[in-house]
Design a protein around this nucleic acid. Structure first.
Lengths: 143, 143
DNA sequence: GTGATTGCAAAACATTTGCATTCCA
DNA sequence: TGGAATGCAAATGTTTTGCAATCAC
């Protein structure tokens, strides 16, 4: 927390922006939750401190994303989900049945990326990809 | 139009549901538009006839989907996009820049599907997949 | 002190619901 | 005719915006 906190402060100052408690709280919540919607981030913050408005959460998520600190993906029902951007993009596996979100290494996409690029000239952005299906545990439970 | 129209009538009657002009209009619009949100379907219908309510469009899209005639995918900004379900699932390529939606054959996923299944036990549902990136024409325009 | 940031309330937007009316069967 | 389907209006839920108050610098 302290480490990420100070990183945030550096980035903010480097852009001439101000370091506020709200911004640290939002970044912390995104990190702690792993994958979370704006509303879940807000809930998490309300569990710690009081008086942080949902409006600020929306604004801060946008800000942190434009700073490259976090990124969002569209998983199932349309609610954008935020996660730390730090490490190179990861791919989301969403289970249709239980809603679990798993992450996989983007290198499984290398073959696909290459063929899309050659056949279509389409440059795949792995960070925004979400794949739907049935996860292993739901599959077992169903048998 | 007449062919799909009569198919629709058959399916509706087979389920004890009523054949209405609105249902045919919505199905026609989805087919004609290729990929469209509820709102775009509504606009398209309003261009032909007057007095079809957006509420009915939402209800009818749900109905047609539960009948297996259409399907929806979540492309970018959270608005569900509907398309004909008929032929086996296709995969959507969405351009981040211009918003164009292209379709590709699911077989490009075969390699990926196999490794996900072996490594993770994850059963990929190709129909709901949306891939983001930059399409060929935007890429060219940018250079 | 000054201007960026926040909180609040209200607006905007998309979708759903209740209920009276319409119309297919 | 009877009940499903529709239209309308209002409710709901989420995200955005305007503006005054606050707080980091």
């Amino acid at each position: 927390m302290s480490v990420e906190g100070s990183q945030l402060a550096e980035v903010l100052r480097a852009h001439g922006l101000r370091v506020t408690a709200q911004r640290q709280l939002v970044l912390d919540a995104v990190r702690d939750l792993g994958h979370a919607t704006a509303e879940r981030v807000h809930e998490a913050i309300c569990g710690k401190v009081t008086g942080v408005n949902i409006t600020t959460v929306y604004r801060t998520l946008d800000l942190l994303e434009s700073l490259g600190l976090i990124a969002h993906t569209h998983l199932s029902h349309g609610a954008p989900v935020y996660h730390l951007a730090g490490n190179r993009g990861h791919v989301h596996l969403v289970c249709h049945r239980c809603g679990a979100v798993d992450e996989i290494d983007p290198e499984v996409f290398d073959g696909l990326r290459r063929s899309l690029e050659q056949q279509r000239g389409f440059l795949l952005d792995v960070g925004h990809v979400a794949l739907f299906g049935i996860c292993a545990s739901c599959e077992k439970a169903n048998l």
